[in-house]
Simulated assay, not measured.
Amino acid sequence: MSEAWRQLGAARAGGILLIADHASAFVPADIDLGIDPALLREHIAIDIGVAEVAALLVESGAVDAAILGGVSRLVVDCNREEDAPGVLPIASDGHAVPGNALGDVGREARLARFFRPYHDHIAATIAAHRPAMILSLHSFTPALAAHPEQARPWHVGVLYNEDDRLAAAAIAALAAEGLNVGDQLPYSGKLLNATMNRHAEGNGIPYVGIEMRQDLVRDAAGQALFAERLARMCKKVTLNIGE
């Protein structure tokens, strides 16, 4: 294990690997973000419900292993390119993050400590145990404070970029669960897909990006229900691999 990542289960060649960039709200004691600690319980700091759903999917055997980001997305956003301004966010949904106004030395130290070890572990895992499919798991807030006029009615979103081999099957499987499914919503994988671009598309591995609406996975009952839905989705989607 590492402070940069946490792994559940054991990766298996030909299996399903789950990757969750924003599954933790942890901020190391030696990092001061300069924010109200209460914000660490909000969507700007963590993808609410993701760690719990990932654990249930591993426990049930629906996925073989899950690699979870070890620190809050406010410490470093691992679903960005390394040189992207937002990799160390100085603001999120109307909240300033003054502790991330770092110079080149501080930025480099943060990336070397968290960002690179996280991605290095994913790369090494894939190289050693190439999965048949990668499931990228995130969650989204029902409403952005900065844009309250923008409704987000979808229960779940399916995201992808150039590789859309599994997208249609995932959308169909989730719609069959009675869910309102957003195709490239609440945002498009063609705009924000850094981890999957690097590790899935970069290796030619089929994948699907899933965004769960956070009010549906805030409690144990909702998390269990979504884990069951995603397990059924994975079973259906893997039938399309190799077609």
Rank of each mutant, 00 (worst) to 15 (best):
R198Y: 01
A123C: 11
V97W: 10
N197I: 00
G106S: 11
E162R: 13
V217A: 03
S136G: 13
D93N: 08
N100G: 03
P142K: 00
P206T: 05
A101R: 15
A38D: 14
S72Y: 12
A51V: 01
E162T: 10
E243A: 15
H22A: 10
L174A: 08
E243N: 15
A175I: 05
G222R: 00
I48N: 01
L135A: 02
N161P: 03
M133E: 04
R116A: 04
N203G: 11
L225T: 13
A127T: 02
N100C: 12
S139A: 12
A220K: 08
M1A: 11
L135V: 09
G94R: 06
Y187M: 08
Q7Y: 00
E243G: 15
A151D: 09
D163C: 13
V58P: 01
R107F: 02
G178H: 11
D183G: 06
L39H: 02
N180A: 14
N240T: 15
L239Q: 14
P98L: 10
E228T: 04
N180G: 02
A20L: 07
N203M: 06
F114T: 03
M1P: 14
V208W: 08
V156I: 15
L111A: 07
H22Q: 08
A25K: 03
I67L: 13
S139H: 12
R6V: 12
P37G: 09
R113V: 11
S72I: 07
L39R: 01
P98V: 05
A109H: 04
P28A: 05
E228A: 12
G9I: 05
R232W: 01
V27M: 09
C78Y: 01
A65Q: 00
L239F: 08
V105H: 12
F115A: 09
R232I: 00
A45Q: 05
E162Y: 05
E228D: 14
S136E: 07
L33P: 03
